[in-house]
Structure formats: C-alpha cells, structure tokens
C-alpha cells in the first residue's frame, strides 16, 4: 500500500460523508443530516491528526524542511476546523440556507487542499521515504484516533 492510495481513500470517504450530509439537509432531513455531518467531522479531524502527528513530522524529518508545504497544510487544516465549528453552529439552529452556504465554501476549501496533498505532498512522501519508514508511518497512522 502506498501513502497516496491510503490517504486518497480517506479523502474520498470524507467527501462521501459530506455529500450525504449536504443532501439530507437540503431535503430538511435534519436528524440524518446531523448524524452524517458528525461522521464527516469525525473522519476529517482524525485524518488531520494522522497527518499532523505522523505524516508531516516524518516528511519534515526526511526533508529537513519544517517551513514548507506542511506548514501551509497545517494552516489550511485550521481554516477547515474553523468552518466545521461554524457548520455545527448553524446545524444546531437548523438554518438550512446558512448550512448550504458554508458547505459550499467547505467543499471548495477542502477539495483544493486535498488536491495539493494528493498531487504533491503524498506522491513526494511515496518517492522520498525509505520503505521501512513508509510502512511504519502507515501503521502508526492506522492507530490514530481522536
């Protein structure tokens, strides 16, 4: 298994959960929507944690660069987290329009973030990390929970 394929699958999983929540809320099915949104938030935050605590430090150690791409990725994670918070708020209030509007920003923000990771960062990791370290990082990432 490569880092790319493992992490890409997680991105797709998050997309599916997110789209499901959006669809339910668009149809005013609040209960289902909330459940799916929570699953999405959970999945996304776990994924971020895997990156921030395992993958990024490994990458930084290997390249000796802590100010580069991983820094930008961390900054974007913060933006996504901020949006998750706001979405939870409007979900509480059952404000459909506000939810759909925030969902739009979230999707674009998250997609462009994921693309940068998939096209650049993950493939760099697969290329530069020695096989044992790669295996180890993958194993450690699978253990991460929040």
């Amino acid at each position: 298994m490569t880092i790319s394929s493992y992490m890409k699958d997680e991105h797709r999983e998050c997309d599916t959960l997110f789209a499901g929540a959006e669809e339910a809320i668009a149809l005013n099915k609040w209960e289902v929507g909330e459940k799916r949104f929570l699953a999405f938030a959970n999945e996304t935050l776990t994924h971020f944690k895997k990156e921030e605590e395992e993958l990024f430090p490994t990458f930084e150690a290997q390249t000796g660069n802590t100010q580069g791409p991983t820094q930008v990725m961390r900054f974007e994670h913060e933006q996504v987290k901020g949006l998750i918070g706001k979405m939870a708020e409007v979900l509480e209030k059952k404000d459909r329009d506000a939810y759909l509007s925030l969902a739009e920003s979230m999707m674009i923000l998250l997609q462009q973030h994921n693309m940068k990771e998939e096209q650049m960062l993950y493939s760099m990791c697969d290329n530069i990390l020695p096989p044992e370290i790669k295996e180890e990082t993958l194993a450690k990432m699978k253990e991460v929970t929040i």
Partner: peptide, 9 residues
C-alpha cells in the same frame, strides 16, 4: 521549491 504552493494570502 514547495513553499510557494499554498493558498496563503
């Protein structure tokens, strides 16, 4: 070479 790659302001 990579730090240009963020969507930072």
């Amino acid at each position: 070479m990579f730090q240009q790659n963020g969507l930072s302001l």
